[in-house]
Amino acid sequence: MVGIVLISHSDGLASEAAELARGICGVDVPVAAAGGTDDGGIGTSVDKVAAAIEKVDQGDGVLLIPDLGSSVLTARLLESPGSVVIADVPFVEGAVSAAVAAGCGAPLDGVLAAAEEARTIRKM
């Protein structure tokens, strides 16, 4: 199964978004949170992101979903074409959409495409 890492400036935001994505998709999709700095402040930790990638990597690839700013730059430092890819998508909607696709067994490019669809799907 494709792994998903949610990267946010906020530990709480990343953790809760991961919880939500796991809860909505209903299967045991590997979704990990990497939020905040090493000392729990607002920011990004490359070590947390690297550890989260390792945790969810089952060999089918990992999708990184950053919130903004330094999260995006940190994700870009760790991307690896074909195995660790970044989704430029709305954080919550993209996470849920990616988790549902990963739970259905979609490959990495399919999970990325599902996340990207979240950008254009209207709520109303």
Binding site: G43, S45, G69, S70, L77
Partner: peptide, 14 residues
């Protein structure tokens, strides 16, 4: 890259 925590970390780091 590891210690700054903001966008300048990856940028100056790289």
């Amino acid at each position: 890259i590891r210690k700054v925590g903001g966008a300048s970390g990856p940028l100056y780091g790289i």
